[in-house]
Amino acid sequence: MILFDRVSFCYNKNQETSFILKEVSFSFKKGAVNGLIGKNGCGKSTIARLIVGLLEPSDGKITITDEFNAKPYYFSGMIFQNPDNQIVGTTIGDDIAFGLENFNLSSDEINDSINKAASLFHFENMLDIPVSKLSGGQKQMLCIASVIALNPCWIVFDEPTSHLDPWARIEFWKIINELVINKTIGIIVISQLPEDINRFDNICVLNDGEIYFNDSVNKFKELKSLPYGIEFPEGWKLEKLLEDEK
């Protein structure tokens, strides 16, 4: 479980008005797809960066209560929006190996982890293929494989589907669901797409640096209104219209 206890964050400590997060307290649990939504600049990516340790909270405490999965004992990984900006290796094998090499693992351990992660994403026979020959969807899958190879407790996806075509999105959500069923890796997905909301089990809605809503998707459906800039998926709106007509 990830616990945010009265966490505040501001980029400029001299300006009290520049708080991105204002004493927010909430938690994310494993075994479910945790969604984080909100309009631009509300602090979603800041929360993601706080979880993976790229930023330190200005005030409050973030606690991860889960135990490590396996070597290299890595807490949380993050998948960014644009896969092109996060692939380091020139081949699939090189890129998956990059993270493992950073933890100074032995050659055999690294090869073992590469093979396991690659087989999950059907890359086992493509390890020597240059990254430049992959499609956008395959690049995104490679980014996920590279993080999964590190056996993280949690993975934060920062708008992962925005660069994917509809078919690649279906494939992406299949993999996420498999990870959720296995319960070894906690999943947090940041998204602005109403269609992604359908896939979440729990939703945390951020509005101007504060938590507006944090509960199950069924309770989210019952909300009468949403903050400006956030909308229900079209399917839900139609369902509501039909119910109202009845």
């Binding site: 790229l54 290299p72 990984g77 380091v88 990059f98 950073n102 100074n104 690294i110 993080v147």
Partner: peptide, 15 residues
Amino acid sequence: DAMEVRGYSTERPRS
């Protein structure tokens, strides 16, 4: 950022 999240550090030895 992506490299740092994947454990890259100039202070630690790499294999």
